[in-house]
């Protein structure tokens, strides 16, 4: 069922920039148009690029935002989220907890 929803209208998560737009919707209570514009501006891409896997893969690799394929030395999980915090200018709870447990703060 989720596969059909994603194929019909989804932003395909980490394949493109769906997770980033979702995170901004949640973190800043922004509706979809504003959330897309916010992410596009922060990434320096066009709004149309956000659901385009081909356009976003390179951007994600360059900025260390996590990618689906991991054969290159790209961050994933908590490391990628720390980069997402910086790029999108927001705090992520799991990163805060990680820094606290690691003695960084």
């Amino acid at each position: 069922m989720r596969g059909v929803h994603v194929a019909t209208s989804g932003m395909t998560g980490m394949r493109a920039a769906g997770d980033l737009v979702a995170r901004v919707e949640f973190a800043k209570s922004m509706k979809i148009g504003d959330a897309k514009a916010y992410v596009a501006k922060k990434l320096g891409v066009d709004v149309m690029d956000l659901a385009d896997e081909n356009a976003m893969k390179e951007v994600r690799e360059e900025l260390g935002l996590g990618t689906m394929t991991e054969f290159r030395e790209t961050p994933k999980g908590i490391a990628a989220k720390m980069n997402i915090e910086k790029v999108l200018d927001l705090k992520i709870n799991s990163c805060e907890l990680f820094r606290s447990l690691a003695g960084f703060i």
């Binding site: 209208s9 932003m11 769906g18």
Partner: peptide, 8 residues
Amino acid sequence: PGNEIVMS
């Protein structure tokens, strides 16, 4: 294309 939304 361009009208995509996000999934939760």
